[in-house]
């Protein structure tokens, strides 16, 4: 049982909680000679592998560091442009680290608000009346399970595709939300959840599920 992450989307479609639980870290570091046989390009403020997949470096991975110095945007820590470094023969051999990009909080907010109309659309497209919207969405590498409460809050867990019993997990997260978030007098409705007790109890729950499954929830 692997749970990759938990999201809570408010009634109005805003992301009010997100937690990355167990996302596998994919990172490869390799030393290259001149000229570089991987085509890189700059998009969305990241240096991305466009072509030339090999040795665990896949198309879509981003450049994380050059000679151990972390890359932000298209510059290294000491302010040099990544592309200038790569094109200069004198800098080789170069040690480059590539990895899967991590979604930033902003990207997650965008994704959460994209799921909202998707959910509504699914219930409208339904051939039969009274459709609940998307409850589960399966891909080859993950399964997304969604539970919408009567009040309109959506609880979402992203798990491995073979995960069973996510409904029970979602129900437990709902209980935790009603206990630790809503009974906290300093939490205002519809706002992002920043309650330490909620965090800790959620982590305990997820660890329990990963260790012993969902049968005893």
């Amino acid at each position: 049982m692997v749970i990759y992450g938990v999201f809570i989307v408010s009634k109005s479609g805003g992301l009010i909680y997100n937690y990355d639980h167990n996302i596998p870290r994919v990172e490869t570091e390799k030393t290259f000679g001149f000229p570089l046989d991987i085509k890189l390009q700059y998009e969305n403020k990241k240096v991305v592998v466009a072509f030339g997949q090999r040795d665990g470096i896949n198309v879509g991975h981003v450049l994380l560091s050059v000679n151990g110095s972390p890359v932000t945007g298209r510059t290294t820590e000491d302010g040099r442009d990544v592309f200038t470094i790569i094109e200069t023969k004198e800098n080789y051999p170069l040690s480059l680290k590539f990895g899967r990009p991590r979604a930033t909080t902003n990207e997650k907010i965008v994704l959460a608000s994209m799921f909202y109309p998707l959910f509504a659309l699914a219930s409208q497209l339904s051939p039969v009346p009274k459709c609940s919207g998307i409850e589960s969405l399966t891909a080859d590498t993950f399964k997304l399970s969604c539970f919408q409460t009567l009040t309109g809050v959506k609880f979402i867990v992203v798990t491995e595709p073979s995960m069973t019993g996510s409904e029970a997990v979602l129900k437990r997260i709902y209980e935790l939300y009603s206990d630790y978030a809503l009974k906290n007098p300093f939490y205002s409705l519809e706002m992002p959840i920043r309650c330490e007790l909620f965090d800790t109890s959620l982590h305990t729950l997820l660890e329990l599920v990963e260790k012993s499954g969902t049968s005893n929830l």
Partner: peptide, 14 residues
Amino acid sequence: VRLIEDFLARTTST
């Protein structure tokens, strides 16, 4: 407004 969530989470109300 807050208690309703607790009620729904505890009971299996539809």
